[in-house]
Design a protein around this nucleic acid. Structure first.
Lengths: 230, 230
DNA sequence: CTAATGATTAAATGTACATTTGAATATTGG
DNA sequence: CCAATATTCAAATGTACATTTAATCATTAG
């Protein structure tokens, strides 16, 4: 490469590749996915992804160099967050492209669901309609902090770990819809499994709050309410 | 990683990373950008990117394994094309994210433009309005085959290489707007430079046909018209 | 069949990357 | 100041990747 035009061209594609490189590692994509739910410390991210702290820290800095995340130190902890909602949108774009182009995504998902005997049944659009109209009990089974950072309006916060103890809180006569972080988050799957065993008519909503927001729908923030839904 | 849930999780992020890896190399991004303009043979791609044929072929197969492009053999030539318009859209998403997050993109561009004394002047929205209303002479300075595959309605096909010879075809009393493959394609910049030297009131439109299409605007296809614009 | 051409493959090279380990740094509480 | 804790850094490891060269395969024209 010699001419200024050629040098310009390479420089631009190198910049674009910075974004590409940032999302070229499974580990980093998982970090981005988690950070889409809200800010996290290094320790939390390491724990939730099952990676070592050092490795997590390293990946986070790759993401930071690509300006996809930002870090802020408060006391002993460094909290990472997405640099912009555009990053979350881009992650969704990437996920959607993978879903549409790579048959393996659907295949892997189906295999996992079949392995648990928990095949989906209700169509997504109809389910979303009922969730939006409040016709069902909505369960947010993510950790409470994520619920606080943003949840589907009307949803109850019942982290998966507490679900068993708190089954009594749920009305038996209404349908229950559980959701968590998105289509590939297994917490809602496990919740539905448990609920069905206990006789509930339970369904999983694939969409997480980022999908919800991407559709332009309103989210609620703040503390969990006590007691029953509505 | 042990539990089926954990294996599922890794499998999914590995799939997403296939897309990420595909767009993590400057060379491959350039190939995708070119393929957004239309199908190409390996030889053409190698020539236009300045990469060796073997290397180009290799990159194309990486893209093919990620299902972003498809290949078809016709006689001696293998023609590659984007597998889906969603790929082109995703490339634009990536480009936009890089533009919004990486200050270097604007910086590198400004540097290049300043180095040529060809700083932009007209606001993009106003320019687009005039182009859409046909108030100006529109010049598509890409190779003719790309014009044929799709161009801005009303545009004349005047490849950069022929511009000098064909200056006489252009009315001197109208403003001229030149465009090529997108904001980082230098052909329109060079065209405007030449036109201004010859006394034309010439401007560059940053958008290429993919940007145009992404806005939902109509494109024309087919053979170049003879003679003057409208 | 042979020569020519386009594309892919294989082997080889150097570089970049992910990950682990252990040390180093920074902050807070005693 | 010291100890405890969270994070980062540095070094070291193996693996994956980009690129080149040369050989190979496939197709067409003569």
């Amino acid at each position: 490469m010699k001419t200024p035009a050629a040098r310009f061209k390479t420089a631009i594609y190198e910049q674009l590749a910075r974004i590409g490189k940032a999302v070229s590692s499974p580990g980093r994509l998982e970090l981005l996915d988690l950070l889409s739910q809200g800010p996290r410390t290094v320790e939390m991210l390491a724990h939730q992804t099952g990676q070592s702290v050092a490795n997590t820290s390293h990946h986070l800095q790759v993401l930071r160099r690509a300006r996809l995340v930002e870090a802020e130190k408060a006391g002993l902890y460094v909290t990472y967050r997405l640099a912009d909602t555009a990053v979350s949108t881009f992650f969704l774009d990437l996920r959607r492209l993978a879903e549409s182009r790579l048959a393996e995504v659907e295949q892997v998902t189906r295999q996992y669901l079949e392995g648990r005997g928990a095949l989906e049944s209700v169509g997504s659009d109809e389910l979303l309609r009922r969730v939006r109209h409040g016709d069902v009990t909505i369960l947010d089974v993510r950790p409470q902090e994520e619920y606080r950072a943003g949840h589907v309006p009307g949803a109850l916060s019942v982290p998966l770990s507490e679900l068993k103890k708190r089954l009594a809180e749920l009305p038996k006569d209404r349908e229950v819809v559980a959701y968590c972080r998105g289509p590939y988050c297994v917490m809602a799957i496990e919740a539905v499994e448990l609920l069905r065993k206990r006789g509930f008519r339970a369904y999983r909503m694939e969409q997480g709050v980022t999908d919800w927001r991407a559709r332009g729908w309103r989210l609620e923030t703040g503390e969990p309410r006590k007691g029953f839904h509505r």
